[in-house]
Design a binder for these strands. Structure first.
Lengths: 210, 210
DNA sequence: TAGATTGTTAATCGATTAACAATC
DNA sequence: TAGATTGTTAATCGATTAACAATC
């Protein structure tokens, strides 16, 4: 293995740090510390300093971190100091909610197209986008240089959609369908599944755990 | 610490196992193995057997696991062999998407009320539920014996809503707002934040990582 | 019986944290 | 200077996995 490889669990915490830094910057704060970041997130300050140390030295002893500076550095590290074009598959309620959520935009991602296979939905306007036929997938992907797709279709269709996306050249997928996708190893997949959290909480809410 | 305490990371995998078992049962399968479950989820078979061993012995050597039996056992362990009543705060696009998603229902959770603070939305019908004034929170929680709430309001309102929920007696929260909630330690909180996954993937999509 | 698969132990691997020198 | 906080090392802690006896 690459001796410089950074643990994925570290990479996964960087967006959390970035989220807090964005918030601090919005609040007009100029300085922060690993202590403050950790308290906000429920993480130890040591862990935050250790995580950051994989990438460089961003703070000043006795002073802490410049909020904007650290934010910009994290954006660079995560490659969200530029814009990623996304396609969204599925124009149902969930798809619409995703389209109206500003967070993607603010986080560095632009949804440039929404596609569906339902003739009823194709052609409808949602915000600034018109729902396109999923058959147009290859053209849309090529046209916008899309590398990341978002799946918001029923579980029963997700695998098929995912394969079409991969065939069209996408190499990362964020899926809301509660099903494990079976795809080539080099395709990155992230799952959003609210049931995991709910069922985990249910376990801890049972009498023996409270 | 309790020497019998089971690592949370183990608890968090059980819903994944349950999801696959539900699927296998729907497909009419009667037997499975740790190998098959692991292959489906991208987890080692050893880890699955080890995880299950915290709770008992559910399989037969040489044969594997009965799909329905293991599914029922996991439901019992996770306490989703019964129904949990949820309240949903926020009747925007996301709230509506959550209400129409069957997965909660199938996973053991029933959304029994939806509340909002927007006079425009209060009184509207969404599916079987009428949007109620968030001021009614305490009564609604008491009436339905709600222990778990789902937050689908903008980030700027999430902390306030969370505090109201805790005051009304809720002790677990699933939140879609991209903000870390500051709440008493005994309150369980689960976060759904699509940006974490997207930004993690962006990191790995950069030229040096592909 | 032979083959398959579980449940479990012990070893390995990897992540977190305590401690502290450096230094602003 | 005194106080605060970083960056880093080494120790600790915890999770994963390899190996295998048990047994269906």
């Amino acid at each position: 293995m690459n001796p410089l490889a950074i643990p994925e669990i570290v990479i996964r915490r960087l967006p959390l740090y970035l989220r807090v830094l964005n918030r601090l910057a919005d609040d007009g704060r100029t300085l922060t510390s690993s202590q403050e970041l950790g308290d906000t997130l429920g993480i130890s300050s040591t862990q935050i300093r250790k995580d950051l140390s994989y990438f460089g030295e961003f703070g000043k002893q006795g002073t802490g971190y410049g909020v904007r500076y650290l934010r910009d550095q994290l954006r660079q590290i995560l490659q969200v100091d530029r814009r990623w074009n996304l396609v969204l598959i599925g124009a149902g309620d969930l798809g619409r909610a995703i389209l109206r959520y500003n967070g993607f935009q603010e986080g560095g991602f632009s949804i440039v197209a929404v596609l569906d296979n339902d003739q009823e939905k194709i052609g409808r306007q949602i915000g600034k986008l018109k729902v396109q036929d999923v058959a147009k997938l290859p053209e849309v992907i090529a046209e916008h240089g899309v590398q990341i797709a978002v799946i918001a279709v029923p579980a029963s269709e997700a695998q098929e959609v995912a394969e079409a996306l991969v065939n069209a050249g996408v190499n990362a997928i964020l899926t809301y369908a509660p099903i494990t996708l079976s795809l080539p190893d080099h395709i990155r997949v992230e799952y959003i599944d609210p049931l995991i959290g709910l069922q985990t909480m249910a376990y801890y809410l049972s009498p023996g755990h409270l």
